[in-house]
Design a protein around this nucleic acid. Structure first.
Length: 406
RNA sequence: GCGUCGGUGGUAGAGCGGUCAAUUACAUCAGACUGUAAAUCUGACGCCUUCGGGCUACGAAGGUUCAAAUCCUUCCCGGCGCA
């Protein structure tokens, strides 16, 4: 059972710093969750994840179900022990794959809308997932075999995967989906949340796992608020036992107002439960979302971008494959305390990337994850110290220099 | 010396009379990536351009043709075979 304590509120905003206590240790929030989709943070060993100071690792239901199968993971004692991670853990429900293998499959559509997307094309010939009220039918991206996920089966699988915190099965909609579809989908996600909770209560009578509901609603304020209200109210309902232990905020956003949309939701959600903003991890978004009341974040960006050669520095991103770095015998960032910066130069990293050496991915992931983990830690500290607003202003001014208008 | 095969853009290697500034891969130069389908994907990659096009190119020089990287001649260079 999860215990969440708010230590300090960020005055005049929805933000707060706190502590989540789990059976596998505590999480100081706001916190960045390392993503270990297939029970591995790509390119990193568990020892490296620990050294980085990550507090929680999140794995994925869809991926572990397909491979190696939830029963194998259960035999290992859960995905944490399986990968030699003994701290707090989470699993995502597989709902995101309704989007990434469904509407978004084979397209350039990201869950973060830029505004340039074409209107929703509800039928994509190549997609691997199909959503109905019952659940989501998938074709495995590995071998094409057909599978059905329902709220119940997602709970069953997540039970076997054994994480401390799990998510209700939801539909992550496309930002290109029209209002009517978002509304319909939201009703379905609400229904699925109730079904998830009911199954969770059946399975987990000892309350070993904590269940987070997922707020959807796309980019529409009324839908987001409706989701927060209805799912928030469910927590207080005796019909569903103790209700949800926390809330995930998922789905699609417009780049400009992630903070705004998250604020609509957090203003209505029960204050005493942790809120996890799903899949968000760019510096600007982290500041805005913390300020808007989020406690947890997970994101693949640090590791994926790292593998692809894009590295964070306090003065913005740098692409280590660029020609200018081949003979720069300096760390990625002077003063960075990560293993990579303490031991290696830009020139070495540039060489490893160009030579396609696997170590490039490891060293880059270490640096980026270190950067984002420290950033969120610093944000937490700044809330406790009452320096959040100044820290935000200073950080963003350096990271995103104002563009010079000609 | 004779015979034979071949010399294509940074590299390898297609093309074998017009639709070729030349398939493709790699390299190079940039860009993207937000609950991982991703060690992935996208764009550029002869020179110039008012973006319509113009110019110079397929070892070299000639030639045939309305038209040549593609056919012919000679030369240069390389592989192989025979002397």
């Amino acid at each position: 059972m999860l215990k969440f304590t708010i230590q300090k509120k960020l005055e005049g905003t929805l933000g707060r710093a706190g502590v989540i206590e789990t059976a596998h240790g505590e999480i100081k929030t706001p916190a960045f969750v390392a993503v270990g989709t297939k029970a591995t943070v790509k390119a990193l060993t568990a020892e490296q994840i620990r050294s980085l100071g990550a507090q929680v690792v999140l794995a994925n239901t869809y991926h572990l179900y397909l491979q190696p199968g939830e029963d194998i993971v259960a035999q290992a004692g859960g995905f944490g022990p399986f990968m030699d991670w003994h701290g707090p853990t989470m699993t995502d429900s597989g709902g995101f794959q309704a989007f990434s293998l469904g509407a978004a499959f084979g397209t350039a559509v990201s869950k973060i809308a830029t505004g340039d997307e074409v209107e929703d094309v509800s039928v994509h010939s190549g997609q691997l997932a199909h959503v109905t009220d019952e659940g989501v039918t998938f074709k495995s991206h590995l071998d094409g075999s057909k599978h059905l996920f329902t709220p119940e089966s997602s709970m069953d699988i997540q039970w076997k995967l054994g994480a401390d915190m799990i998510f209700a099965f939801d539909e992550c909609t496309s930002p290109t989906a029209p209002y009517e579809y978002q509304k319909k989908s939201l009703a379905r996600t609400y229904d699925w949340a109730k079904r998830s909770l009911a199954r969770h209560n059946e399975l987990d009578t000892a309350k070993r796992q904590s269940l987070f509901a997922v707020i959807q609603g796309g980019r529409f304020q009324d839908l987001r608020e409706e989701a927060a209200r209805t799912l928030g109210a469910l927590a207080a309902s005796s019909e569903y036992g103790e209700g949800f232990d926390g809330y995930g905020i998922g789905g699609s956003f417009t780049k400009e107002d992630i903070g705004t949309a998250v604020g609509w939701v957090n203003a209505l959600l029960p204050e005493d439960k942790p809120r996890h903003l799903l899949g968000i991890g760019e510096p600007l978004d982290l500041f805005n979302a913390v300020e808007a009341g989020c406690d947890l974040f997970d994101c693949i960006a640090p590791t994926r971008m790292g593998r692809h050669g894009t590295l964070h520095t306090s003065r913005g991103r740098l692409n280590i494959r660029n020609a200018q770095f081949v003979d720069q015998f300096l760390p990625i960032e002077e003063g960075c305390m990560c293993y990579t910066c303490q031991h290696h130069t830009r020139a070495y990293l540039a060489h490893l990337f160009r030579a396609d050496e696997m170590t490039a991915a490891t060293l880059a992931s270490i640096h980026n994850l270190h950067f984002i983990l420290r950033l969120v830690e610093n944000i937490r500290e700044s809330i406790l110290n009452d320096t959040f607003h100044q820290y935000k202003k200073d950080f963003l001014a350096q990271y995103y220099p104002p563009t010079v208008s000609l």
